[in-house]
Amino acid sequence: MSDPLRPTRTRGARTRRFPWWLLLVAFVVVPLVEIYVIVQIGQVIGAWWTILLLVADSLLGSWLVKREGGRAWEALRVALQQGRMPHKELADGMLVLIGGLLMLTPGFVLDVVGLLAILPVTRPLGRRALAGVIARRLTSSGGPGMGFPVAGFGGFPGGAAGGPASQGRARRSPGPDDVVPGEVVD
């Protein structure tokens, strides 16, 4: 007799496998590239200037995170006060956090990636990439939307359900777990 609360595995069920090559890249390739770049810069400008440049880079990163993180927090607060979904603001906050972590690690290559994630000029590119990753994960896992694209996270071309890009698509009626915006009138 099987337990009704425990999920059963079927033979053809798709299991999610962790990409082990990602660990290889993160813990072997990236540090080797960072060390190589630090050594090359050290040979050009000298060891003490390289160390000073790494410290200045980390200080610049912490200042940028404080500044852009404050702006992202304020934008999130305003979006919530206006009663709209803060998907852009949450993505910006996440990118600033990730960029700040990358800027605080010693090295120049990850600092450039972190800088691109923090700067407001390049953040929309990171936001679009982050939205694509989240939408892919949600639609493939059967999470919110259960296979349907997630509105506001780049799942629909045009960014929103029912927007101009989704005209002509079949509409689905809300299910028991869907949230339908509305207003209660007495």
Rank of each mutant, 00 (worst) to 15 (best):
residue 139 T to G: 02
residue 119 L to P: 09
residue 104 L to D: 02
residue 111 D to T: 10
residue 77 R to V: 06
residue 85 M to T: 14
residue 87 H to K: 05
residue 128 R to N: 07
residue 90 L to P: 15
residue 111 D to P: 00
residue 130 L to Y: 04
residue 96 V to N: 08
residue 101 L to Y: 13
residue 86 P to D: 12
residue 82 Q to A: 11
residue 121 V to F: 14
residue 124 P to G: 03
residue 108 F to H: 05
residue 114 G to N: 05
residue 78 V to D: 08
residue 100 G to L: 03
residue 131 A to G: 14
residue 139 T to S: 15
residue 75 A to Q: 04
residue 88 K to H: 13
residue 101 L to N: 14
residue 72 A to M: 02
residue 106 P to D: 04
residue 121 V to N: 13
residue 97 L to C: 15
residue 73 W to F: 07
residue 120 P to I: 05
residue 72 A to S: 04
residue 123 R to M: 05
residue 75 A to M: 04
residue 139 T to D: 01
residue 120 P to Q: 07
residue 115 L to N: 02
residue 112 V to H: 11
residue 138 L to M: 06
residue 99 G to H: 01
residue 91 A to P: 06
residue 73 W to S: 12
residue 81 Q to N: 12
residue 76 L to H: 11
residue 119 L to T: 07
residue 73 W to M: 10
residue 118 I to C: 06
residue 115 L to A: 06
residue 92 D to H: 12
residue 139 T to F: 01
residue 71 R to V: 01
residue 123 R to T: 07
residue 91 A to K: 11
residue 116 L to T: 02
residue 80 L to E: 15
residue 134 I to D: 06
residue 76 L to T: 13
residue 74 E to H: 00
residue 105 T to G: 12
residue 134 I to E: 07
residue 113 V to G: 03
residue 77 R to G: 08
residue 106 P to I: 06
residue 134 I to T: 01
residue 121 V to T: 13
residue 108 F to K: 01
residue 127 R to L: 02
residue 121 V to A: 13
residue 118 I to E: 02
residue 111 D to G: 12
residue 132 G to S: 07
residue 84 R to N: 09
residue 110 L to N: 05
residue 84 R to P: 10
residue 77 R to M: 05
residue 72 A to I: 02
residue 71 R to Y: 01
residue 92 D to A: 14
residue 120 P to R: 05
residue 106 P to G: 07
residue 123 R to E: 07
residue 135 A to L: 04
residue 99 G to D: 04
residue 98 I to D: 10
residue 83 G to P: 08
residue 99 G to S: 09
residue 107 G to V: 02
residue 111 D to S: 12
residue 127 R to Y: 00
residue 117 A to L: 15
residue 130 L to K: 03
residue 114 G to S: 04
residue 86 P to G: 15
residue 131 A to T: 03
residue 85 M to P: 08
residue 88 K to Q: 14
residue 97 L to H: 08
residue 109 V to S: 04
residue 89 E to G: 13
residue 103 M to T: 13
residue 122 T to V: 07
residue 131 A to W: 08
residue 138 L to D: 03
residue 135 A to Q: 11
residue 85 M to V: 15
residue 113 V to S: 11
residue 77 R to L: 09
residue 113 V to Y: 03
residue 96 V to A: 14
residue 78 V to C: 04
residue 105 T to S: 05
residue 99 G to Y: 03
residue 128 R to A: 14
residue 124 P to A: 03
residue 115 L to P: 01
residue 103 M to G: 00
residue 98 I to P: 00
residue 72 A to Q: 00
residue 120 P to G: 06
residue 131 A to Q: 13
residue 115 L to W: 12
residue 124 P to T: 02
residue 110 L to A: 01
residue 105 T to Q: 10
